[in-house]
Nucleic acid binder design. Sequence first.
DNA 1: CACTTAAATTGACCACGGTCACTTTAATGA
DNA 2: TCATTAAAGTGACCGTGGTCAATTTAAGTG
Lengths: 192, 192
Amino acid sequence: MARAVQKRRLETRARLVAAAQEVIDAGSFEGLRVEQVVQQAGVAKGTFFAHFPDKDALMDLLIGARMDSILDRMVTSDPPRTAAQVTDALMPLLRFMTCERYVFDVILRHSGAAARAEIGPIATTFGRQIEIMIPWLERGPFRKDVAGDLLAEGIQAFAVQAMALKFCALHNDTDLRARLAQYLDAWLMPAR
Amino acid sequence: MARAVQKRRLETRARLVAAAQEVIDAGSFEGLRVEQVVQQAGVAKGTFFAHFPDKDALMDLLIGARMDSILDRMVTSDPPRTAAQVTDALMPLLRFMTCERYVFDVILRHSGAAARAEIGPIATTFGRQIEIMIPWLERGPFRKDVAGDLLAEGIQAFAVQAMALKFCALHNDTDLRARLAQYLDAWLMPAR
DNA sequence: CACTTAAATTGACCACGGTCACTTTAATGA
DNA sequence: TCATTAAAGTGACCGTGGTCAATTTAAGTG
């Protein structure tokens, strides 16, 4: 019979997560070093890897949490009723997802996408995005010839595409919004 | 006045690329180690990094070349005339892009997407894909309410989405094809 | 052909993520 | 209360990508 996890373990884990957050707040996601995190948390390096399979798992957790809180705010706003409004509703999320090139890469690796077998925090938020968008699409004046979940998946696909293009040096934030708006207009309101 | 590059440099570079290809042929993209490549090529490690900014740049080159040769074959076939045929026409490319999880990750990082400022081999093939698809879309019985390049970009977005899902353990190759076909049908032939 | 200069190459070295045999700490039960 | 056992934590160590001051090689030049 396996023994229960000790309180000490939970505390250590919490210290690690808090330390990681402080390191990021003082720098960036990309700049985070495991060595720095364990030092800040006052534990040995090995302890880190006893709590997280690898550095990416910590990033998955922290980035996923940020995305989740953005989704929390998203559900409290009025549902968008046009393609342009859908774009606007998504912008806060997309802005965070592209705040750093490294963050976007981590997200791509973990988005339902390159997700491992088991589903992680980021992949979970991708599922949640779909769930949030489906009611928007069913109620709004959008195309009805394809199922809501397929429509929502398409929005995700276009959002990824638009974000990806943002990292081609020449493009900036207004381009991201304009580009996504153009995609979504064609996807959600086809004139045929 | 800068002096011209010496023949020796070109030879060394060719040896490095050839060695890398051999290492991959005997193993996998993911399994490639720089140490192994320089040993096979008979040069020092530093030489590798005098020729490529990092390991990723080599991967960009080799993977981009493979994609390019697949595109070469693609242009010689008959242009697809339905969404399902577009899917089929793309499958050889998508199969290679998903032959290894690592390969897909590299492609995502370099696809016009996460491309660096300067455009690399993989990003170039992404541009070429668009150019190849535009005539398909203009001639075929596809929607005409959006420009051909936008339509082509959408196909890319959906292809990435479909490939990404392939790596969720449960999905396999037939799923990739079926999923993409479903996306493209909705994207290219909207019933409204 | 010497001599100069820049290109090309070298390999010891570093940074950083990740491992594992070992030590310490806490729960369990007689 | 103390012995037993499993969980938690440790830090020296490793693999691998990447750096750079120093060295070798080749191309001008008088």
